[in-house]
Design a protein around this nucleic acid. Sequence first.
DNA 1: AAGTGGTCTAGACCACAGA
DNA 2: CTGTGGTCTAGACCACTTT
Lengths: 237, 237
Amino acid sequence: MPLYQRLLDLLRSQIESGRYSVGDQLPTEHAMRTSFGVSRSTVRNALRALTDEGLIRPTPGVGTVVIRSRPPVQPSLLRGFTEDFARRGVPTQARVISAQIVDPPSQVRDRLELLPEEQVLHLVRLRLVSGAPLALMDNFVPASLGIGPEEDFTGPLYELIERNHKYYITYGRDAIGAATVRPEAASVLELPIGSPVLTIKRTAFIGYDRPIEYVEAIVRPDHYEYNVTLLRGKDAS
Amino acid sequence: MPLYQRLLDLLRSQIESGRYSVGDQLPTEHAMRTSFGVSRSTVRNALRALTDEGLIRPTPGVGTVVIRSRPPVQPSLLRGFTEDFARRGVPTQARVISAQIVDPPSQVRDRLELLPEEQVLHLVRLRLVSGAPLALMDNFVPASLGIGPEEDFTGPLYELIERNHKYYITYGRDAIGAATVRPEAASVLELPIGSPVLTIKRTAFIGYDRPIEYVEAIVRPDHYEYNVTLLRGKDAS
DNA sequence: AAGTGGTCTAGACCACAGA
DNA sequence: CTGTGGTCTAGACCACTTT
């Protein structure tokens, strides 16, 4: 673990515990430099991180004061299913049911803003948690991305896109609904006919507004709920 | 003007103008160091600022790539139902079914972090779109807020809380699921027994982490879907 | 093996605030 | 005036990725 991070953790815990309260002044950078036996850059590295977290405010000529004892809440970030579950400590597996280059349905063509003749990679995967089916996912990515049906789709798809193709996903739009499970999906998900399911439709974008992936997921609601944290803006009404 | 800021402005304008496009690799830190005649720390100071702005992503062992040409899209904000629909041009009405001060169920007590004897205002409302039922909502707010059962609950609840009581909601956590509609709810929502419904459980907070409202909504999925825009962070995996 | 960004050191000068 | 944080230099070693 980097030196500055240990100092960062120490300072953060001291602020959180009240060793330094809101309004207090932290020791000067020089004082930390000597008391921790590190260079000033290392101290500043830690202080910059605390500044970014919104806990302290350094003022030239004055010093560094504590302005918060806890970090402000962060809104949710876009995560893939694999990532989402991994964060909660639940490992999931993906079983590839089919992967082929096809002509997209018109809905997919619209969402991905494809050219008239453009094809897509259509990926159907079943996601499992400890062997039990959780979600049936239909992913569509433009064939022009160069991701072929032969690749390994058992890991996080975003990593595959980002690592192999130098595209970076910047944001996504999710639309969540509920429906009665279709018979084909019911058998794959091992659900009784007529069960309710959660449906997630997501369009992911690269750059400012170029759609790069469209997903439709059908999820068993008994073992998953869609969680999101949203900030309230001043003009939200 | 500091050196690193001039470099920062230069790089940002080059990225915005397309001199470096999304996916391109920036010159290495060493290359910039020599071509601009500054130290590596100064270069890194500029690159860190660009990283914070979300325009570039440095990867150890690889290099620094441009991931956006403009500042990122704004993520969704927390909105009440009334606000949410108003934004899309669909006016909704709220019909108050009941409003009373009660002892909360334990689940509500936990979510609102209430004291053992603390009571809540329990509000049951039916939300309608052009006369047709859309959602059944159970709102819980601490009785200590001072909002009594006699107030007008047909408008946005957040406005009522914020305007009359000087509390400002800062964020909320939503948990969205799917379920089979319960018989009582089915009749109110005019749904057949066994229909799937969307369930939304929300906790809204004031300040850093003080819960101020808990809502459970049961929504007809045929006329509503939950939409959200999420950013992708650099460490989202 | 070569090159990348991440970390770290040991210095230095500056503008600024406060006594 | 002294001390603060802000900026800057010129080195160095590291883990890591790619070749």
